[in-house]
Simulated scan of single mutants.
Amino acid sequence: MTKKIVLLFSFLISSYCSFSQLPDAAGIQQLRKFQDSLQLLSQEVFSGKGDDGRLQANEDFIPMLVKALKIKNSFHFTFDSLKTVSVLYPQDSAFRVFTWALERENGFYRHYGAIQMKTADGQLKLFPLFDASDFMTNTDTITDNKSWYGCLYYNLLHSRYFNQDYYTLFGWDANNPRSQKKIIEMLTFKNGLPVFGGPFFSFAEDSVKKPTQNRFIIEYKKESTATMNYNKELNMIVYDHLISETNEPGKKYTYVSDMDYEGYKWQAGKWMHVHKIFHDAIPLGKGAPIPQPLIQKNKNMSNPKSAEDYQAEGKNTPPPKKPVKKSS
């Protein structure tokens, strides 16, 4: 009986501590007002008329978001009305990351974001993210928040190895009028500061050895769709194997899926490359998704569609024609 009472008190104390970290009534009211204004601005950033209008909306959005986040315990206010802004928390809720995109009239994109840390006193600790991807001559590098590889994050995994926390970020970059990209990179914290990238993508088990990569990127045809996400059933990252549909491997904007799938498995603090996931037969109940053509006007900037998404939604749009692989 005594043990049950102790457990009950422990539960009540932890519950009180959890609720006590929420914004107070006045703070929630302020945050809701900010959210309404931010929602309108975010829609203007996404679909406003002309570059000038979208840029101005973005310039107004950023300081307003910072003002909202300065409200004590704002970390626990989810901003779930911001449909064109991705807000992701890892499983341990140590931080959250905001990302969004601004499309230019020339079809190119620039990304914006920030990492808000969870703090014991509820005060704001924020790392703004500055998109430097257009100026990177080498994308396989380790960066900080001031030289971020800009993209819109759509998934976030938390892993631990030897008491170290690792966060795997999955990002989408609408890129330019001819191609789009998906990115996987690791986020770690060193001396309390965010570090993007690192030697975590290994090809040591491949028959053809390649150097370990700091960041993994696929680029493919604008109208095509490629899967790259964590698969819970397989307990690994799964992504489409891509080939040039015009047999021009140097032109990434011609790449499409050939219906094969590669992946990465978490092993000893690294993502270990798996060259081929499905072999002679696909396991029962774990069918590979069928890529669907991307309709640009239906794009969702805070939830980019993958082949798995289309399949789950039951869309019956026929897949794009694929090059037929020749048997050896």
Results as ranks from 00 to 15, higher is better:
residue 17 C to N: 07
residue 18 S to E: 13
residue 18 S to N: 12
residue 19 F to N: 03
residue 22 L to T: 02
residue 22 L to C: 07
residue 22 L to Y: 02
residue 22 L to M: 05
residue 22 L to W: 00
residue 23 P to K: 00
residue 25 A to N: 06
residue 26 A to D: 03
residue 26 A to Q: 05
residue 26 A to C: 03
residue 28 I to E: 01
residue 28 I to W: 00
residue 28 I to P: 01
residue 28 I to H: 02
residue 29 Q to S: 10
residue 29 Q to K: 02
residue 30 Q to T: 13
residue 30 Q to C: 11
residue 31 L to Y: 04
residue 31 L to V: 09
residue 33 K to V: 10
residue 34 F to E: 05
residue 35 Q to K: 09
residue 35 Q to W: 00
residue 36 D to R: 04
residue 38 L to T: 03
residue 39 Q to G: 14
residue 39 Q to F: 05
residue 40 L to S: 14
residue 40 L to W: 01
residue 40 L to F: 06
residue 40 L to Q: 10
residue 41 L to P: 06
residue 41 L to G: 09
residue 43 Q to N: 13
residue 44 E to S: 09
residue 44 E to D: 14
residue 44 E to H: 05
residue 44 E to P: 02
residue 45 V to F: 05
residue 45 V to M: 08
residue 45 V to S: 10
residue 46 F to M: 07
residue 46 F to S: 11
residue 47 S to D: 10
residue 50 G to K: 06
residue 51 D to T: 12
residue 53 G to R: 06
residue 54 R to Q: 06
residue 55 L to P: 10
residue 57 A to W: 03
residue 58 N to Q: 13
residue 60 D to S: 15
residue 60 D to L: 15
residue 61 F to K: 08
residue 63 P to L: 07
residue 64 M to W: 08
residue 64 M to K: 15
residue 66 V to G: 07
residue 69 L to D: 11
residue 69 L to P: 14
residue 70 K to C: 10
residue 70 K to G: 10
residue 71 I to H: 03
residue 71 I to D: 01
residue 71 I to L: 11
residue 71 I to Q: 07
residue 72 K to I: 13
residue 72 K to R: 15
residue 72 K to W: 00
residue 72 K to E: 04
residue 72 K to S: 11
residue 73 N to K: 02
residue 73 N to G: 09
residue 74 S to N: 05
residue 74 S to I: 10
residue 74 S to T: 13
residue 76 H to W: 04
residue 76 H to F: 12
residue 77 F to R: 08
residue 81 S to R: 10
residue 83 K to G: 08
residue 83 K to V: 13
residue 84 T to Q: 04
residue 84 T to K: 01
residue 85 V to Q: 00
residue 85 V to D: 06
residue 85 V to S: 03
residue 87 V to E: 02
residue 88 L to R: 08
residue 89 Y to F: 11
residue 89 Y to P: 13
residue 91 Q to R: 14
residue 92 D to A: 12
residue 92 D to T: 06
residue 94 A to M: 15
residue 95 F to N: 10
residue 96 R to V: 13
residue 97 V to P: 02
